[in-house]
Design a protein around this nucleic acid. Sequence first.
DNA 1: GATGATTACGGACGCCGTAAGCATA
DNA 2: TATGCTTACGGCGTCCGTAATCATC
Lengths: 298, 298
Amino acid sequence: MEPHLLRTFVAVADLGSFSAAATKLGYTQSAVSQQIAALESDLGAALLHRRPVSLTEAGERLLEHARPLLLRIDAARAEIARVAGSPPSRISVGATPLAAPRVAAALTRARTSHPRAEITVAVLGRGEVLSQVAAGTLDLGLEEGISAPSDPLRLPDIGPANAVRIGEEELTVVLSAGHPLARRPALRLADLADARWLDAPDTGMPLADLRAAAGSDGFRPSLSYHGTDVGTLLALAAAGHGLTVVPRHVLAGIPGVTGISLSTDPTLVHRTELVHGTLTAHMAADLAAALTAGPAPP
Amino acid sequence: MEPHLLRTFVAVADLGSFSAAATKLGYTQSAVSQQIAALESDLGAALLHRRPVSLTEAGERLLEHARPLLLRIDAARAEIARVAGSPPSRISVGATPLAAPRVAAALTRARTSHPRAEITVAVLGRGEVLSQVAAGTLDLGLEEGISAPSDPLRLPDIGPANAVRIGEEELTVVLSAGHPLARRPALRLADLADARWLDAPDTGMPLADLRAAAGSDGFRPSLSYHGTDVGTLLALAAAGHGLTVVPRHVLAGIPGVTGISLSTDPTLVHRTELVHGTLTAHMAADLAAALTAGPAPP
DNA sequence: GATGATTACGGACGCCGTAAGCATA
DNA sequence: TATGCTTACGGCGTCCGTAATCATC
């Protein structure tokens, strides 16, 4: 269970290939093979099927633990590096595309009260935000996703009390204006399991999250979009390539699409949280105050 | 950041001594010294002051990460061992003392519906429960603590969705019957920071949790009790040795003590959660259904 | 001076690369 | 047959124990 073995295991699982993982990590094919073998013998269970490479049941379980473990290890290392180093004068903030409007709005307000802070903002794919906060590349990150009202997001914890609630909004499913369901006042997520869905893991709600929320194994992708541009995602939805789920506010004034509320569902909402390393907890408190004022403006 | 380094670091931090940690872990004094040195050089920061041994700022940070990391590593290993092994016929359940009445009540009901299950029950000190669930020694554990209403407990996560809410109850502070405050209808936790407190880390609410909940650095212990017997704890409170905090139901019919509600506080409640490895999720669902029926009987 | 952490050194083991082997598509 | 994972083997680095050294109470 040494971290470098977990790292290799995750790489192999992601890439579906020993040799690809080897080149990515700077090892030889053989080394990766030996590392996986070592992990399997340590744990006493086969983790991967070979030829083609796929996860065994035990491998699936390990993967669920390995990612958060590696994330937390990075977080610990980054935190200690900060304690040892000098207090940072620059603050970097990252956000997922659907949370980005909140940062922009809050920073204009923060500028007036803290005019001398040097702030960097980046919009990143979902998943990048948390790992970069963990690694210390980002000081603060805005994450968002689906949850029950007043329930926290299910993010891997990278430290004590590292996420604070920013706000919750109505969750809507985006349909092209001409869609048969476009005139319904509200919909239940489970009823849409068999529809055509957009797979936009960087930008929209991951389909796996929809499956988890609806308790269904549907939500199969009809088109995949890799990128962080919300406009493109909505344009794809408007063109009828599939459905996607977003918080209501991003649809304001967008032509060609209709947002149908999912709030009659076993009460699902779109929730935004501010994630931070514990060392930037005071910064987080300041920014959170500015951010929680309400839903983001257009 | 290899796990064995973290393990020795935690042992040194707990025991306050390199040599004590060495004997506990089966190393030589020298090996422990080298391991700590390796960790410090890897992280680029001093983790411990020597002579006497105490944590540096960086060490404090690392410790906050190291314990959950080790817990999760144990959880992953246990989970994989279960996948590889045969499905368990015996179920072991553990609970902290203040949660114990709930298991007892639920199991009598579970007995009638699942008469052939072989169930083991243990009452353990706070902190033992989670680590044994992680390690796979326990299949299910009942944890409890202070939280805001409908907020989850702040437990280190040992896997995806590993805790489910069982119930919440009024939180009361226990006073001897003759105590000056014993006739108040309600109290605020922060006002009691300077009182004499019982330190019963295995049984009652840890004083550190009270400090965190009240945002105060008071709650200093006047007497410490190590053990898992709630009756003894209440007897100490009745005898005026100090205050302690418990959920209301444990006080029903106990002479010599008075419970004053803390519910007017920034709304603090006593919350109970069922913790499980993901592999026992279905067992957890069954037991949770029996457990959530209401507050435990006397 | 005794206790306890550090440093020096040596043997054993582990890890990774090279290279050969082997199975599957 | 070719791609790709596995096994064999050797060098190098790491880890831990013994033992000597150093520092602190």
